[in-house]
Computed example of a mutant assay.
Amino acid sequence: MLDEPGHLREGYAEIGDVRLHYVEAGQGPLVVVLHGFPDFWYGWRHQIEPLARAGFRVVAPDMRGYNLSSRPAGVAAYETEPLAADIRGLIHERGAQTALLAGHDWGGTVAWATAMYHPEVVDRLAILNAAHPRRLLEGLHHPGQLRRSWYFFFFDLPELPEAIVHADRWRFFRHFLRDTSPALTPEEIDRYVEAWSQPGAATAMLNYYRASVRTSPKRAEAALRPVKAPTLVVWGQRDRYLGPELAEPSRDDVPNLDRVEYLPDASHWVHHDAPERVTQLLIEFFSPRPTTGPGEGGQA
């Protein structure tokens, strides 16, 4: 199991002025998995060891601001450009030129950005319940998605969100996790509480939302680039926060979309609710594809 000694290697990567904590397991092609909010590397605990056993080297970082990674000051430090640069730097720091990249929630947003801004480092891209930025921009023009996304704007308030999430031993975040993913155990929630309690972590985590809200739609749209990497989207259909219309990106934005895999019984926390199925999908998608030559089904 993950908590037994010897299965996980722990380290820190110096990426410019940012120090990223990560855990690593296995040997083989590099897979980088990015967590969402209010998560940390532990959110991928069900996938790390199986991916390692399948022949991959898995690196699961705490993104900047989270858990044991450093927390740059200021909202601008949490815009998608520096976040994507962190992941490019992490891939290189771990001795690879490219990686297979997966992201959930905010980690999915950062994975989309990495594939757009630094396509040379992303071999294949897997997205779990994270809308393509254009889909999210479109969704926020509709009342239904605006109601689902109320917390984007609440988190942008000064000081009040920090006070509320800190209160009663992180009751707000604990309720958020339990309400959206009943599969989480009390012991697992305690691991999250420990990560949230790192000094300055709450503000840094909330700054992801603040940076997003404070970026004008015109600027956000101007930053979009086509995603060249083959892409798999996995979507838990019981997501209370992102409507199903956000799941499938435009073929103009993602010309090499492999498919959108819907999991009808999973919530926003799809990799917690259906861990074996998500792991299977990732292994299949990330595994080398057989090539065929002339006379074997390929084109002459």
Rank of each mutant, 00 (worst) to 15 (best):
R94F: 14
D179P: 04
A247G: 07
R9M: 10
E194N: 11
I283A: 06
A52G: 04
P226S: 09
L30A: 08
P38E: 01
G295A: 08
R289G: 03
L30G: 02
W170C: 02
W196K: 08
P275H: 09
Q237W: 07
D156P: 09
G107M: 02
G11M: 03
E187F: 06
F172D: 01
P161V: 01
W235Q: 00
K228S: 13
E24A: 04
P50E: 11
V18N: 05
T98D: 14
T109H: 07
R277W: 05
E284V: 07
P217M: 15
I283S: 02
R238S: 05
V75T: 12
N67Q: 14
R57K: 10
L100D: 07
D123H: 12
H46A: 13
G144C: 03
A201V: 08
H104I: 10
H21C: 00
R169L: 01
T180H: 13
L100S: 07
T279D: 13
R259A: 05
G243K: 02
I164H: 07
L125N: 08
A130M: 08
Y117E: 09
V23D: 04
S181G: 14
M205G: 09
S69Y: 11
H166A: 13
N207P: 00
G236M: 06
P143F: 11
P158Y: 09
T231W: 03
A211K: 03
R148K: 08
D105Y: 00
M63W: 12
R19T: 13
H141Q: 15
G243L: 03
Q145V: 06
R210E: 10
H46S: 10
T80F: 12
A223M: 05
L281Y: 10
R9Y: 07
L177K: 02
V18H: 06
S69L: 14
G139T: 11
Y78K: 04
E261D: 13
I91Y: 01
H35Y: 09
S212K: 03
V233M: 08
Y22H: 12
G243C: 03
E296G: 11
H104A: 10
N207Y: 06
W44G: 03
D62P: 12
G89V: 15
Y22P: 01
R124C: 12
A126W: 05
A195L: 06
S197Y: 00
L101W: 08
A54M: 04
P199M: 05
L257A: 09
E120P: 11
V233Q: 01
L34K: 13
S149P: 00
L125Y: 01
A113Y: 03
V213S: 05
L2H: 12
D190G: 15
V193E: 06
R19L: 10
Q145Y: 01
L282D: 02
Y117F: 12
R148P: 09
L100Y: 12
E14C: 08
A130L: 05
A73V: 15
S287C: 06
L8P: 01
